[in-house]
Amino acid sequence: MTSIYTNGDNPHFQYVLGLGDDALILGHRWSEWLSKGPNLELDIAASNLALDLIGQADLWLSYAAELQGEGKSSDDLAYLRDTHDFRCHWLTEQPNTDWGLSTARMLMFSVYQYIRYERLVNSSDERIAEIAKKALKEVTYHRRFATEWTMRLGLGTDESNRRLQKGFDTLWRFVPELFETTAWEQELADKGIAVASKDIEAEWTEVISAILAEADITMADTAGKRVIGSRHDGHHTEHLGHILAEMQFLQRAYPTAQGATW
């Protein structure tokens, strides 16, 4: 199926859309932990992460809708696009198989988001800078939470180390995608609007390897390993379709009419 937005069309919009979709899908994954967490404190923590991320998604997607200029809302973008129009990284889509995988993913992605936001705070696009500034505060906490849990699981018991290691091993193949940089993203970066993903790989790798070494987790060798396809062309793992089927159910099954809302 052809994507409505082809790779490279309206890059400014696509870039902000990607920031929003990452936050939305990862936030959705955290919301799945509610009432299923290992204890009450972690139910509360998971809901905090979900609230922060979905709140960020709302800000990014509202701005994306403005850049798109078709009079849509953040909800239209979240609830009325199909998988091929989503721009989230594959890492965010992966299912919560256990607390180990969710921790591994949160460490990988919160460090990534932190570095990205830290640079986007200086974006020449004031709106991006403003949202990044707010989100950076939240992601600073997410990164700390993920680091602490990486230590607890990595150094806690043999089982927790094994499960956390498995989480990292499962997710590692989605790491190269985090740093893929399209020509249009590079152009936006050259204008000072965006961050070229490849430019943050070294810092990410340095931070992650230091944490994993301390947590007694082995870092996989990603050289030469990558998943083919691109989120920019609408390629995703099968998991995203299931997230959307659930998340968009009401909007799809009961389209509202005449300005009615939910």
Binding site: L51, L61, Y79, T261
Partner: peptide
Amino acid sequence: RAPTLKRKLILIAKIQ
């Protein structure tokens, strides 16, 4: 399955 971002946030906060 909450139908909008606002409702999803409200519901998560309530359960929290």
